[in-house]
């Protein structure tokens, strides 16, 4: 009867207590009866497809059961019988409903929690990738912005110097020195405007080739006594143009000429390189 689970209340409790004492003989008999009943049930069931059952299992595997749970106590017995039988201790209907609801809620929560945890992990991973991409984009934009700022500052300087050039050329005491091309830059031209009253001098050139790496152009004042004096160091634009402020020529000395040479970056105190432009007042 124990093998069938059909023992009534007192008999069931007595049998359970006896088996719990570890009676090997009864345990063995119980097993043998269970095996016999299993054989009967399987033989009676016959053969047939189980495709629909497998579909249900596949759905569950897809939802979140990819791995078996860790070993736990197997609940291979039915839950307590309903309390409408006089011989069994009563369990209230509300308790059963509450228990079933709680179990269902717990299972549902576990499944949903597993899904949400998985989804959140995926979302966080995707967010990390997006954040990394946005960070790279922000760094690129910041770098481009710095370049634009530098270009804008250069344009401001150029406008300012161009304004000075215009003022110098329009000033009544201004002196204009036109620079003529020499063989290294036959298409280049240049002009220097010197305004003693404004205390500034401005050079404007065009058609100069881009200087090699580590080189810059240097403007010189060539005086009758001091010889060449450093006036300005500059690099033209990609188009070969430049408008730069320079120092004033030496006072109290006759200015013989002005010239532009190619020198090491930063310039030298005395010219050492090839002359590209030259002119006399």
């Amino acid at each position: 009867m124990e093998a069938l689970g059909t023992l009534d209340g007192e008999d069931a409790r007595a049998m359970a207590a006896h088996l719990a004492e570890g009676c090997d003989e009864c345990q063995a008999e119980l097993r043998s009866f269970r095996e016999a009943l299993t054989a009967m049930a399987i033989s009676t069931a016959g053969d047939g497809p189980a495709d629909r059952i497998w579909q249900r299992l596949e759905n569950r595997l897809a939802v979140g059961g990819a791995a078996p749970a860790a070993s736990t106590l197997i609940n291979d017995r039915p839950s307590a019988r309903t309390p409408n039988r006089a011989e069994r201790p009563g369990v209230s209907r509300s308790w059963r409903i509450a228990t079933v609801a709680a179990a269902a809620a717990a299972i549902g929560f576990a499944v949903l929690s597993g899904n949400y945890v998985s989804q959140i992990a995926t979302m966080r991973q995707e967010d990390s990738v997006r954040i990394a991409a946005l960070s790279r984009q922000a760094r690129t934009l910041a770098s481009e912005l710095e370049d634009r700022d530098r270009e804008l500052a250069a344009l401001h300087d150029q406008i300012s110097v161009s304004g000075q050039l215009t003022q110098a050329m329009l000033a009544p005491d201004s002196r204009i020195i036109r620079l003529g091309p020499l063989p290294p830059a036959p298409d280049s031209t240049g002009v220097v405007a010197v305004t003693p009253s404004g205390n500034h001098a401005v050079l404007q050139v065009a058609g100069l080739p881009p200087p090699p790496p580590g080189k810059e152009y240097e403007l010189w004042w060539i005086g009758s006594k001091s010889g060449p004096l450093r006036a300005a160091v500059f690099a033209p634009t990609a188009h070969g143009d430049a408008t730069v402020a320079s120092t004033l020529p030496p006072t109290g000395e006759q200015l013989l000429a002005s010239a532009i040479t190619l020198e090491p970056a930063g310039g030298l105190d005395k010219p050492s390189g090839a002359m590209y432009l030259k002119g006399a007042p």
């Binding site: 009943l37 197997i74 291979d76």
Partner: peptide, 28 residues
């Protein structure tokens, strides 16, 4: 079968065959 999948590690063959285990589960 889902219970078997989740709790296969707890199956004890000394208590009976797999068939008996499954049949006990299906009855329960």
């Amino acid at each position: 079968l889902w219970q078997a999948w989740r709790q296969a590690g707890a199956f004890d063959s000394s208590r009976g065959s797999v068939g008996a285990w499954l049949m006990m589960l299906v009855r329960s």
